[in-house]
């Protein structure tokens, strides 16, 4: 068995306009089976992927926003959102859908997955990774 590597999936596009966000999410879910150290980062227009209250009924597209809530089940428990990207878009953390994971070692306590980080912090996190994908 190979040793565990640190993976970061960067999401920087808005949902729906292209197929990248949905494809990227599927790659994360598939990749989760390999039990690596996985985190996700949402920057630029990627922060719009986590916007609360998406409703695609009238536009006839598939609303894949509920799938982000399954990430905790797939042991993706660290989701970084860049503060500057939110601010540039007039968004705050309250605009994002709450994402949680259940800590098996702590009697299944629900813990938040989203961490708001500064661009500088994210830059440091990026440097720590072994593998970085971006969608």
């Amino acid at each position: 068995m190979s040793e565990t590597k640190k993976f970061m999936y960067i999401n920087r596009r808005p949902p729906y306009g292209t197929v990248y966000p949905l494809e990227g999410l599927e790659v994360v879910l598939i990749g989760a089976a390999f039990e690596q150290d996985v985190c996700m980062a949402f920057i630029s227009d990627g922060v719009f992927q986590l916007k609360q209250g998406q409703d695609t009924i009238e536009s006839g597209m598939k609303n894949f926003s509920p799938t982000y809530r399954a990430l905790g089940d797939y042991e993706v428990t660290r989701i970084y959102v860049e503060r500057e990207s939110l601010e540039e878009r007039g968004l705050t953390e309250a605009d994002l859908m709450p994402l949680t994971w259940e800590d098996e070692d702590d009697d299944w306590a629900e813990k938040p997955s989203i961490q708001i980080v500064s661009r500088t912090q994210l830059s440091d996190l990026l440097e720590e990774q072994d593998v970085v994908f971006n969608f």
């Binding site: 879910l29 598939k62 609303n63 799938t67 809530r69 399954a70 089940d73």
Partner: peptide, 14 residues
């Protein structure tokens, strides 16, 4: 709820 079919590992745990 999640708009996906869970992977077997996730299913087993859930």
């Amino acid at each position: 709820e999640y708009q996906i079919a869970p992977a077997v590992r996730v299913l087993t745990k859930a």
